[in-house]
Nucleic acid binder design. Structure first.
Lengths: 247, 247
DNA sequence: TCATAGGGTTGACGTGGATCAAAGTGGGAC
DNA sequence: GTCCCACTTTGATCCACGTCAACCCTATGA
């Protein structure tokens, strides 16, 4: 799990929310054309992050949040003894860096799972503009709240579900998010390793692998390394709500 | 786990942040005297919640967040099949209800662990005022971000720690929070049952009970039902960082 | 005073997932 | 092409925690 140093590829290109096809998923959601123009002024340059490189790491000074324009990321926290917990996987249109607001320093690492690009949103400027633009303020609050709700879902998963339920929930969640982005909800490519999935789901990679194999045997999904095809969506959902016996 | 209906005891008493000894922990943190006065105007009435009664439940319309003035709460989410996941325990000065912003409806239940009292903060008014008062806006953002960071800590706990580490982390966290409120960090009364602790930590109540007994045998804490006295704080901390062997 | 009930503790036993080990797969470098 | 290396799969075994069951403790109230 060795990580290359944070190699920043600075870009002078300005982002342009108004032109971005992700605006319905991202911070500009619900803003009027004029308001989006104002957001455009605020959003700084973009930044490219190569696969396996880090956008920020725990302890880095916080000064901006990031909207993913292309690619995908994982966020994780490390324990002193080296144990890693992946806290999330983020895709296009999602916001990274909210963890840094509370202490003016980032509390986790954000690593690109593939060559990616983010829009840099200087936080103090965002606060400034959201004092003027009510809809931006509200949308930003929703984004933060959504992150809290998502985290509660992960707690549910980690605290109360068995291995196969966790993986089913994970696949269904990915499927939904791919669909929201106009991709096939039934067929996609995993950007993360079994080990990273395992860390996220509180399982070992072998267990993740076995669960994939089991799903395949049962005709729920077709798994080919990182390529996933969901064959029986309803079956996966059933696994989630009914597999729960005892307790 | 039967719950009494949300029995609201309405109170006409106005809250007064400016008089509140929790203001250094709560939303008014960092505000000037004058700014706190403005917050006072916004904060609505207080509300008393009896032990085991609910402040809000999943699905309830969202219109306010709540600052705990006295007492303590748990928040939990329920799965269709009845499984419960406690997502947090909240004490005085902490904010409840942030989960509701994202979808205009609460996504979890908040239940008083003892007779408690909250300040009602109408959310639209809070947004309004925080457009005017920069320090309030910033403090509110910090509160939300802190919740996200806290949640990541719980994920770490649930995803990567063994039973005794989880309980040690839980006790250390409580200790710190009691201390921040001017209570003894070494001796306190648990407001929640073993079952609720177990749900929070992703363990069964028997496992929680055994871990308490083990800590007691090892001279780390003195446990008497819900009364806890931490004898060897360093020992508990050591458990957390070193107990980790393999992996 | 005893009865009842809701926690809490403890023991015996079972099992889901971790661990250890070995072999398979595919993509990239040259 | 073919070598390499990181990742994945699969099997055998182990063990931490769950499950089931009995008992205990304390509080409350007739």
């Amino acid at each position: 799990m060795e990580m290359k140093a944070t190699a920043v590829t600075p870009t002078t290109l300005k982002a342009a929310c108004s032109q971005c096809n992700l605006r319905e998923l991202c911070l500009p959601f619900g803003l009027t054309g004029h308001e989006i123009d104002r957001l455009d002024e605020l959003v700084g340059t973009k930044r490219k992050i190569r696969r396996q490189h880090q956008l920020y790491r725990a302890g880095d000074e916080f000064e901006a949040i990031y909207a993913i324009r292309a690619g995908s990321f994982k966020t994780d926290v490390l324990l002193e003894d080296g144990r890693e917990q992946v806290t999330g996987f983020q895709m296009t249109g999602e916001i990274l860096g909210l963890d840094g607001i509370s202490s003016e320093a980032h509390s986790c690492n954000a690593t690109a799972l593939e060559d990616s690009e983010v829009c840099i949103i200087p936080f103090s400027k965002l606060e400034e503009l959201s004092r003027e633009v009510e809809s931006l303020q509200h949308q930003f609050h929703k984004v933060m709240s959504r992150e809290i709700v998502r985290d509660h879902g992960v707690m549910m998963l980690l605290g109360s579900m068995r291995a196969e339920e966790r993986l089913a929930a994970f696949l269904l969640n990915l499927s939904k998010r791919f669909m929201a982005r106009g991709y096939s909800p039934a067929e996609f490519h995993l950007r993360m390793t079994r080990d990273e999935i395992g860390s996220y789901l509180g399982l070992k990679l072998e267990t993740v692998s076995r669960a994939f194999s089991k799903f395949q045997d049962e005709g729920l999904v077709a798994v080919h390394q990182k390529h996933i095809r969901i064959i029986d969506l309803e079956g996966l959902k059933r696994l989630l709500t009914h597999c729960a016996k005892h307790t």
